[in-house]
Structure formats: structure tokens, C-alpha cells
Design a protein around this nucleic acid. Sequence first.
RNA 1: GCCGCCGUAGCUCAGUCCGGUAGAGCGCCCGGCUGUUAACCGGGCGGUCCGGGGUUCGAAUCCCCGCGGCGGCGCCA
Length: 414
Amino acid sequence: MVERIKARTLRKRVLKRIAFVDVKPVEAPRRIVQLVVKDPKLIEEVDKLDMQDLIEAEVERVGEDLVVKSLKVLFKNLEPFPIAKKEHGPDFLLRMRHLAIRGIRYPKIFYVEHVVTWSAIKHLVDEGRKRVHPPLIIASATEGGAILFPVDRFGERKFFLSESAQLYLEAMIFALGKVFSLTTSSRMEKSRTRRHLAEFRHLEAEAADYGFEDILDAQERLVKAIVRGVLEDEDASEIVKEFRGKRMDELDRLLKEKFPRITYDEAIEILRKKGVDIKRGDDLGADEERILTEDFEVPVFVTLYPTEQKAFYVKRVPDRPEVCYSADLMLPRYGEITTGGEREDDYYKLLEEIKRRGLKPEDYRRYLDLRKYGSIRHSGYGLGIERFVHRLLDLEHIRDATPFPRFYGRSTFV
RNA sequence: GCCGCCGUAGCUCAGUCCGGUAGAGCGCCCGGCUGUUAACCGGGCGGUCCGGGGUUCGAAUCCCCGCGGCGGCGCCA
């Protein structure tokens, strides 16, 4: 049976009387197919092929082989493809990212990212959440930091790129109850680490009538739904196995076991027992997070952080106002993957907290209105898609978890 | 904002400590090979040694400044 195939060449091995060409079919570029060429005239043609030429071939299946019967070059490279089969440095691959994504490794990563994203969205919709579309140009900071990207002169005023949709989601719960958004958040954090991007895909959710425990449960369900979705997808599951090597049991346990929940105070105690010089009130740095999670096999929630360490909008624990209803979900040996909590719903307490932190109440007038005109207990969380993929695939650097990464310290972008 | 490392062929790097006329592998071009799969074997082409200044008879190599890249801290998802 002869079939026609349109494909892009990837590698070739040409011998005297036989040639082999690895190609990626146009309609399924993640698949690598080996074509066998025996006809002397066609071998001559194959010898002239460059990587990434687009060919059309008639092939016949002979046993295991796909034997080429005819060959036509539809698009010929004008110059040799710059990306070789062998090793490249990170800088070169970033400069060439628009071409590198044609390779073997990147398509796998971005396919998994698609499955991760889709599994998350499907889970949230199945749970009754509605997807909403918050703005990306904002007037004032969500968390009051100096990390905002300014939008240069939009009219008279200066605006910024959003670093979180949270404040808008809090408004939207009054329209739709349980909502979520998937937007691009931008943060000018001057971070040069393998888990930071200046621009990342931010999945955020907010729900009316959700308390602190409810939102922890919601985050646990989401993380499990994503992992389940990936494992149930045959291709994605295979890719994850390939990237993670033997460490698949960790994912099986993640699905089966309830995520432990320890308080910040308990985390400090654990660290002290492990010989870390730390006391209550201190920040949990990267080292501390790693040491803390090294004995856990599944993600662990660290809850009830000191109020001073968290944002102004987090609700304080009524009989212990020095701590608040905020939790980070930490992955073993990685660190934070989500942060969530219950929001302060009392107008006067929120106003007082804004003033106490030196923020301007007029910048948060509309946010305060959400409490002024009849509020409700509510909670939410945020998850970084790239971080999830980074950890799921055990990638060296988070910048490989997005096609066109932007991060601090790089002067040019593809 | 802070700490550390690096810049040599299209790509990945050696040569830098201890100054003396530029190297390898891959890619590319040519030739060989009946089953390859990072094919293999032989040959060839290919260089502003990041830029500028200084020391020296002589600088890829030592010193200073600049630019670019990489890792980490803090911050965060």
C-alpha cells in the first residue's frame, strides 16, 4: 500500500546503496519517522537534502520499513539549518528559540504544557468555576511592590502590567460566584534563578463562601487533577516518564495521598530540629524550603504564616492576629508551586491594614468597595503553569517550560 | 540591590595558572561504505581569540574599563 507523506527532514544517514531519513510529519511534528531509501536515483536526491527541508514522498510499508517510492522537495533551505544535532549552550538556544522549537525536545515539553493547561481548565470548569478575563493593564499594585513593569505613557498617567489578577477576581465572585482566570503576569523581580520568569502564565482562582480549609482542599484537588490528566494522556504520560526517568512513583503517591498540612510554627520547629538556625518570624528562604520538604514524598502545605510576611489583604486569624490565613503549597525539593488563602472581608480591618503598611487607601478605593457594599467570606489561590511544568518534567531551567521566555538580565528577546 | 563564574571557528569546548606566530569534536563541502538510527572512515573549507586601553621585544594568555552571557541570594508562582 502506497501512501503520501508530507514531512520535514530531521537527520539522514546515507550509505552507498541505501539511505535513511528521519522526518517529522507535517500533521504530527512530534513524531519521528524513519524513511528507507533504496532506489539509487532517490539516494542521490536524499544525499542533497538539508535538515528542515520540507519534502513530499510516496512511501510503501515493507515489513517494519517505510520505503520511499518517490520524493519531491517542496521547500528547500536557503542556508544550512543553524541548529545541529549535537550540544548547544543555553544562550545560543535562546537566540535560536524560534527555530529550536522545531527540534525533538521542545515539542515534547510544550505538548505536556498543553495537557497541563487543559487538565487544569477542565477540572476548574467541571467544579463549577467560570473563566473570566481580567485586565492586564492596571493602575496600582496588587501587593504594593516595586516589581511592576511600567507601561510608558498611556495618555497622561503611568500604568503597569498586571502581576496578579486577584483583585479583579475578588470583584468577579460577586457576579459569578466561583471564578478563575489564566493570564500572563509580569513581574520585574530582579531574580536570576532557575525558577523565575519575568512573564509567566498565571492560573488564579477565587471563590465566594470559601474559607481557608476550603481553599486548601481546592488547591489539592487542582494539583491532583492536573497530574491525573497528564498521566491519563498517553503521549504526555510517556514524555513525563522519559523526562523524569525512574521517579514516577512520586506522581502515583501524589494522587493517592492527602497532602500534609503543617503550620508555619511547626515548620520552624522541624527546621530547628534539623539544626537550622531559625526562629519564629523569620522568612523561609530557598534553603529552608528545600530542607523542610526533603523528608516529604508528596506536596506539603505550610499554613498560617506570620501576618508581616504576607500581603495586606490576607485575613488574620481572629484569636491569633500575628498569623494569617495564608498557605504555600511546596513541592519536595522545589519550593512553592501555589500560594493561596482567605481574604480579609471586613472593611475596617482592611482599611486599617492598608494604612498600617503605608499604602494609599485611595489606590484601593474600589477594592475597599467590595467590602463596603455587603461582602462575603472568600478565598483564592494562584499557580504558575511554567513552574508546574518545570517541576513535572524535572527541567533544568524554567525558561525551557515556555516557548519564548522573558527573564531578568537578558538584554534581547526572540 | 548583593555574591560568584564565563566570553577562542557556524555550534560545544581545550589552550590562559607559568606570555613566544591558533587547536579538537560536531556542522558544512569533497570522496568512501549493503541496514543506519547522535551512523561510520578519509580529506578540505572555516578565526577582529567580545570591544577599548595599558604593561612587554612580544598578549588569546597579565592589569584596568566597558559590553555580553551564566549561576545563586533576597523576592516570588
